[in-house]
Simulated scan of single mutants.
Amino acid sequence: MREIVMDTETTGLDPYDGHRIVEIGGVELIGHMPTGRTYHQYINPKRSMPKEAFDVHGISEEFLADKPLFEDIAQEFLDFCGDATLVIHNASFDMKFLNAELEWCKKPLLPMDQALDTLAIARRRFPGSPASLDALCRRFGIDNSNRELHGALLDSEILADVYLELIGGRQPGLVLDGAQQVTKVSGDTDSWRPEPRPNPLPSRLSEKEKAAHAAFVETLGEDALWAKS
């Protein structure tokens, strides 16, 4: 199963108020495992960048001036997505912008049922709890210290880790062979193979819990299975 964990950055909140996409980032998963293949593109929005958007993204009009227009990258973007499930946090927002841009350049729209909303998943799993990307990173112990400004590719990479935790980590794939590596042959997506998580998530056991476990094992005697290294 192929999925693209995706994020967009925009000049504002509504494309039909004249706002545009300025950045798209995507991370490919196969069988719930990152393949190492990504998509990243800055886009010239053909409009001024509001100060509040610059404050959030840190992207200036000058930086975007020589970047391609959305219509110039639309087909490449659609080719990358293919029929993969699009995993997006607050999917209705990003899909509205993406489909507005695709409509304006007369390209096929992305069906809403192609998107999987991690915000909705988080709200179902943790009702009443904060469900922002930052809040979910804190819940799952995922390092987002580099997220001082919003960036589409960085946010996609972080969301990929969050998504895998929301669906139960890497258990669905039951990947037990640590020798699997990323491979690409002739640009064929099916030739990609998943790789292990590069940095293990930190242990959720406290030092107090570890000490209590060690003390309990000592009471079982030297022949106890847990006492053997």
Rank of each mutant, 00 (worst) to 15 (best):
C81P: 03
G82I: 06
G82K: 11
G82M: 06
D83N: 15
D83Q: 13
D83P: 01
A84G: 09
T85E: 10
T85H: 04
T85N: 01
T85R: 13
L86S: 04
L86M: 14
L86E: 01
V87I: 14
V87N: 07
V87Q: 06
V87L: 01
I88C: 02
I88W: 01
H89M: 03
H89D: 13
H89I: 09
H89C: 11
N90K: 10
A91S: 12
A91I: 07
A91E: 05
A91Y: 11
S92A: 15
S92C: 09
F93W: 09
F93N: 07
F93D: 10
D94E: 13
M95W: 10
K96H: 11
K96I: 08
F97I: 03
F97V: 04
F97R: 04
L98R: 08
L98H: 03
L98A: 07
N99R: 02
N99W: 06
A100Q: 08
A100T: 12
E101Y: 05
E101I: 05
L102S: 02
L102Q: 02
E103K: 14
W104P: 00
W104N: 14
W104C: 03
C105Q: 11
C105L: 10
K106W: 14
K106D: 15
K106N: 15
K107Y: 05
K107V: 05
P108M: 08
P108N: 02
P108L: 09
P108Q: 04
L109D: 00
L109V: 06
L110V: 08
L110I: 15
P111N: 04
P111V: 04
M112W: 10
M112C: 00
M112Y: 14
M112K: 09
D113C: 02
D113N: 12
Q114W: 12
Q114E: 11
A115I: 14
A115F: 11
A115Q: 04
A115S: 15
L116E: 12
D117K: 10
D117L: 02
D117I: 07
D117G: 07
T118F: 05
T118D: 13
L119H: 03
L119Y: 09
A120V: 13
A120Q: 14
A120F: 08
I121A: 01
A122L: 10
A122D: 00
R125E: 12
G128S: 10
G128M: 11
S129E: 15
S129A: 13
S129M: 14
S129G: 00
A131H: 12
A131D: 08
S132H: 09
L133P: 00
L133M: 12
L133Q: 14
L133Y: 01
L133C: 10
